[in-house]
Design a protein around this nucleic acid. Structure first.
Lengths: 197, 197
DNA sequence: TGTACATCAGTGAACGCGCGTTCACTGATGTAC
DNA sequence: TGTACATCAGTGAACGCGCGTTCACTGATGTAC
C-alpha cells in the first residue's frame, strides 16, 4: 500500500495519494485498506514519511560518495556541497516525492544550542537537517569553520537550498532552462560559502 | 468572484478555491461563474495573480515606510531588510494567500545580466523579484555593494528568504514558537548580510 | 492425529457528498431605427 | 417618442464522476486442546 502510494506521490504529489487508487494498484478492494490504515490521512502520513526517508537516503548516498577522511578540509567542504547537490537533484528529479516529503511534516523538534543534546542523536541523523548538522560539525572539526559561527548556521543554509528547490520546482522559476538552473545552483552554493567563510 | 476566491484562498490555500463555493459566497448560482471564467482553472489563476499582487503590495509598503533618500547607505540597507521582513510577515500572517501566490505561477521570465534590459521595467517592478532587484541596485548606488558582486545576487537572497518562509510555514519548522521563529529570521538576515558584505 | 475455534486480510455492495460542467431558459438593460 | 431587438448576467435542473467510508460477510491460516 505504501509503495503504491509512493508511486502515486511520485507522479502527482501528495494530492495524488488517493486511497482508492492505491488499493487499485495493489489489486485489492478499496475498503481492504482499512485493515492497515485508520483512514486516508494515515496512509498519506506513511507515504510522506517514506518520501522523506527517500530524500534522506539520497543525501546520505551523496555524502558517502565523497572520499576523504573525517576532518579533511577539502573533503568536509565537498561533503557539504554534496548535501546541497543531492537535495536539489532530488527536488528536480522527483518533484512529486519532494513535495510529498514536505506536505505533511512530522513534527520536527527545533534543537539548536543547548537543547541539542537532549535529542536522540540517531533520530536526528536520519533527517536532512541531521545530515546538514553533521556536515557543519565536520567543517568545525576540520578547522574550516569558526566554532563561534557554527550555532544555528544550519537554518539559513537549509533555507537557501530549500528555497531554491521550491522556486525552481513548483515556483516561479520552474520554467528556466537547465543551464540557468545549474548557474542558480552554483550561485547559491557560492553565496553559502561566502556567508560561511 | 475573485474577491470571494481570495477569501477562500486566505482560509485554505489554493485547493480551497472551489468554484461552487465562490459562487455561493457571491450569492449566485454555480454556473453563473462561466459567464466570467472559462473554467475553474481560470478562476484559480486570477486568484493566484491577486495573491501575488497582495504580496507585492505588502512588500512595497514595507519599503515605502523606510525613510531616507535613495542612495543613503543606512536607508538602502534598511529597505533591503524591510523587503525580507514584509515577505516573511506575509507568509506568516497569510499562509493561505502566500501558498496561493506561488501555487500556479505565471511564467516568470528569468532575466539576469544582459537580458535584463529587454524586459519592461514597470512589469518587473511590480513583482517581489523586481522589488528585490531595485533594493540591490540601490545598495550598489549607495556604494555599499560591490557592483561586481551584484549580478545574479537576487536569486540566492530570494531563495534564502523564501526557503525560510516555506520551512516555517507549511514546512517542518512550522511548529516552532514565535521567539525561535524571530531568531531564525534574524539569523537568516545576518547570513544574507554576511554573504553580501 | 484430528477437531474446534480464533484471527484477520480481503470481499461485495452500498451510502452520501461535493465537485466541475452542460443544457435550454429568463428577464432586465441598453441601443437602433 | 415609441417600438423592436440584441446583449448578457444570472436561473433551474440535471449529468457523471470519483472520492472516503461503513456494513455485514467470507474464507484461508494458524493454534489450542
Amino acid at each position: 500500500m505504501v509503495a503504491a502510494g509512493l508511486e502515486l506521490a511520485r507522479a502527482g504529489g501528495p494530492d495524488a495519494v488517493v486511497l482508492r487508487e492505491a488499493t487499485r494498484a495493489v489489486g485489492v478492494v478499496p475498503n481492504a485498506a482499512y485493515r492497515h490504515f485508520a483512514d486516508r490521512d494515515e496512509l498519506l502520513a506513511a507515504v510522506c514519511a517514506a518520501s522523506m526517508r527517500e530524500l534522506t537516503g539520497r543525501m546520505a548516498e551523496g555524502i558517502a560518495a565523497v572520499p576523504g577522511a573525517h576532518g579533511d578540509q577539502a573533503a568536509a567542504r565537498a561533503r557539504l556541497g554534496a548535501i546541497g547537490a543531492a537535495y536539489l537533484e532530488f527536488a528536480r528529479e522527483e518533484p512529486g516525492l519532494f513535495a510529498t516529503a514536505f506536505a505533511q511534516p512530522r513534527q520536527h523538534p527545533y534543537t539548536a544550542g543547548d537543547e541539542a543534546a537532549e535529542v536522540d542523536s540517531a533520530e536526528v541523523e536520519a533527517t536532512p537537517l541531521g545530515l546538514l548538522r553533521a556536515a557543519l560539525d565536520e567543517l568545525v572539526d576540520a578547522g574550516t569553520l569558526d566554532p563561534r559561527r557554527r550555532e544555528g548556521l544550519e537554518y539559513p543554509i537549509w533555507s537557501a537550498v530549500h528555497g531554491l528547490a521550491v522556486l525552481t520546482g513548483q515556483g516561479p522559476l520552474r520554467e528556466v532552462p537547465a543551464d540557468v538552473r545549474a548557474r542558480l545552483a552554483r550561485d547559491t552554493f557560492a553565496f553559502i560559502e561566502a556567508a560561511v567563510a
